[in-house]
Design a protein around this nucleic acid. Structure first.
Lengths: 228, 228
DNA sequence: ACCTGAACACCGTTCAAGT
DNA sequence: ACCTGAACACCGTTCAAGT
């Protein structure tokens, strides 16, 4: 009995003095965009303390709302993470378009896309990790072509892929690259850039500061030479 | 009070009829290798139901031991996962050596290593995911060269890397590959294979059945052409 | 030396209300 | 329409014992 009482006191003791702060914060989201705020909070938590530190309750705590409020906007924790992934893929697509803007040669546009990919991962590690987290990618029906529960994410992946595929098609039409058996050149390029980005993020590969873009260019150049 | 009683009954109700089975199983590990059994259970759980489904309590339940027993062999959950990663890297190193055995040309030995890497990922998805899970790879001091908490894992990564590096050195000495600015050829090769393996595991890339080895060969060949 | 039991401080999610 | 509170069935981990 004495123990139970102690426990109750301890639980209440921490959040109690924060109540005024909570009220002030809640006003911000009362008729604001709580869904968006939750996505931003998730990204911030993952960037600061890793994917495992992200919990619905922690995100809600940061925004000064009850943890149950999230369920008004997302079906569950996974759905919120899917929203983070969507935001990420949109950002990646925008960055790819921006980097390629003004370039006309297919090879140059592809190289720009490769640079954009790795730079995006380096600058938005939380987004990148959620975009390629197993949860959203392992469902049997969630292939490149077959849509399913996380249909929007899948559609964005397909859109990003199509961007690169169009460049390869243009390069083949103009005779800059040769057609060739085996995996599609986009898959080879994607693999190389995805692998480099992943290994750099998990610090298994050390890139000298400021040299990441050059490394991408050199790897891209080498595989392109193999395609000619 | 009635509620509390119901809850207690429910909690006890499920495991109770299993008690004889538990006893029988526990005998197996009484003076057996519980550490090893826990590693195997972790791999089985992750293969069956994903990395998020693995909990210390579930692993202990499968082996019929109290969940606290794991702490006699591992400091915490992460240490158990590190043991899974170690087992994985040892398996990868063995597979790489086995694939290259009998081959003398550095290019052929590297191609064999590339095939072994992607095949290992396809055949041991749970190991592969744990080996490259953020937890063991994000610590500031856990780079390729600087050892730290998960020192054994780091040493094994370095060993696997050294295997490839020796082949590249041999290839350069014999004039088969050219030296060249930018990332080390091992990093380019590792990135391409790691990216392909990751994208295949998360089903973002569809490989026609039985064609994975050929795809690896083609990607390897193309980047090698770029190195000459 | 190896394992267990009870307890603590967390989770995600459900149900039933509150405004 | 949007948010809250209490409760449930889980976790990982600690403390204190049991054999």
């Amino acid at each position: 009995m004495a123990r139970a009482a102690t426990r109750t006191v301890r639980r209440v003791a921490r959040p109690a003095p924060r109540k005024p702060v909570r009220r002030a914060r809640r006003a911000t989201y009362h008729h604001g965009d709580l869904a968006r705020a939750l996505v931003d909070a998730a990204v911030a938590i993952i960037d600061e303390r890793g994917a495992e530190a992200f919990t619905l309750r922690e995100a809600a705590r940061r925004l000064g709302v009850n943890h149950r409020a999230a369920y008004r906007h997302f079906a569950d924790k996974d759905a919120l993470l899917a929203a983070v992934a969507e935001q990420g893929f949109r950002g990646l697509i925008d960055a790819t378009r921006a980097q390629a803007a003004g370039l006309t040669e297919p090879a140059a546009r592809l190289a720009a896309a490769a640079r954009a990919y790795v730079a995006f991962a380096a600058e938005h590690p939380a987004h990148f990790r959620v975009m390629f987290a197993p949860r959203h990618n392992e469902g049997a029906t969630r292939t490149l072509s077959g849509a399913a529960p996380f249909a929007t994410v899948d559609a964005l992946v397909a859109e990003a892929y199509a961007l690169l595929e169009a460049e390869v098609r243009a390069g083949m039409a103009s005779g800059a690259f040769a057609a060739d058996a085996g995996p599609h050149p986009v898959i080879a390029l994607w693999s190389a850039m995805h692998g480099l980005a992943s290994l750099v993020l998990m610090k298994r590969v050390d890139v000298p500061p400021g040299r990441l873009g050059t490394w991408v260019d050199r790897i891209f150049e080498r595989s392109l030479r193999g395609l000619r």
